[in-house]
Design a protein around this nucleic acid. Structure first.
Lengths: 207, 207
DNA sequence: TCATCCAGTTAACAACTGTTCTCCGTAATT
DNA sequence: AATTACGGAGAACAGTTGTTAACTGGATGA
């Protein structure tokens, strides 16, 4: 099934990835709407016109970055939600989020920044992918015996609440990335308690 | 106490406000980090250099916009949280948020966009102001008999949860602003149930 | 009334932007 | 071995950007 790529296509993928990486780096200090095509190609060390061989515009590149960023988030979310949420498992979930932020800080920053950013197609792409994630989380929640008697749309409501909370928490960890361990611990405690409160709400939702 | 301003200072404030308004308008389709000083002055109909009489840079203007935007949010939040959260009062709170988004859509968009945006001083300003809001909400929550036996930091944790939830909800209403009434109703239902779930969590937090 | 102040103007600067067109070298195909 | 396909380079385009400097004219305060 795996078709061997020619030298040419391999090289193309390589520079394409270099463009994505460079863009992600530059986006740590600005928003996508101010990212210039020349800026990106300069960082890669390639001619400005080469950009067009890969992307129609920086907005197009942004959409590609959404796929990449949420691809890395995907397994993390599955792991986080899959077991039921006893207190100790919530703690483990928060640690998982913290670890993910440490592993892919630029991806997390990009998503937080562009989710409400100034480039419409990118916002749309993020919204779409997050909706798919919420559906996935919902399916995972449905397996849980605690979800007996829950309406379908209430499950989805809860799933969105969890997903949003994960993003808020990720963003907090990101801001505290360079901060002293004490501050990071404070964030951990805050996120853990908020998750717990939501879980308490879940357990007492009906009756 | 109110010192009468001279004709000169009045005019200055007027063009300053015109710059802020023009910037807010332009920011509906881009992020602050791509907002040009010339772009703003052009929209106002004033020379580019006049900008410097009011702001050091567009980042500086952004910080001023934060004050303005959160100034309008301030009374809304007070009204939203002040009474205890029985089910019908939550519905009223959600309606209040929806109304605020309709009244100040540009302010809401600006906050959502720049909270995690590419301009550090603006992020900092928003973070600061939101922290103050959370403190205020906490004080309001503390008055509630339901908060008996709650630890101080747990109250602040809950306050942050409410504030974040308000921003998420505001952003949802903003996206659905041009959508059919059916979609807006869907958002209302979602936000109401999420608020309720959090409140259920609150009621069952201890014991 | 007269000197001072100061918000806003005009002009000019080098540096940068996205985009087009033409060209090159080499991998891929025949 | 000959031909085509194509990722990338190079140069040039008009238009934009932030910032500096010197200037104007009307409100301000003595």
């Amino acid at each position: 099934m795996s078709h061997t790529l020619g030298i040419r296509q391999v090289q193309k993928q390589k520079t394409r990835q270099a463009l994505l990486d460079a863009a992600l780096g530059l986006l740590e200090e600005q928003s996508l709407s101010s990212l210039g095509l020349r800026e990106v190609t300069r960082a890669v060390g390639v001619a400005p016109t080469a950009f067009y061989r890969h992307f129609r515009s920086t907005a197009d590149l942004g959409v590609a970055l959404v796929e990449e960023a949420l691809g890395s988030l995907h397994p993390m979310i599955r792991q986080t939600v899959s077991p039921a949420d006893s207190d100790q498992r919530i703690e483990r979930a928060v640690q998982l989020i913290a670890h993910h932020v440490d592993a892919y800080p630029a991806h997390v920053r990009f998503l937080a920044r562009e989710r409400h950013g100034g480039v419409q197609p990118v916002r749309e792409a993020i919204r779409e992918q997050l909706a798919r994630f919420a559906e996935e989380v919902k399916a995972e929640l449905a397996k849980d015996p605690e979800s007996r008697g829950w309406r379908e749309d209430d499950l989805l409501m809860l799933a969105h609440l969890y997903v949003d909370q994960m993003l808020v928490t990720s963003s907090l960890f990101l801001e505290a990335q360079e901060a002293p361990a004490e501050e990071r611990e404070r964030v951990t405690q805050l996120a853990t308690r908020q998750m717990r409160l939501i879980s308490v709400g879940r357990r007492n939702w009906l009756g």
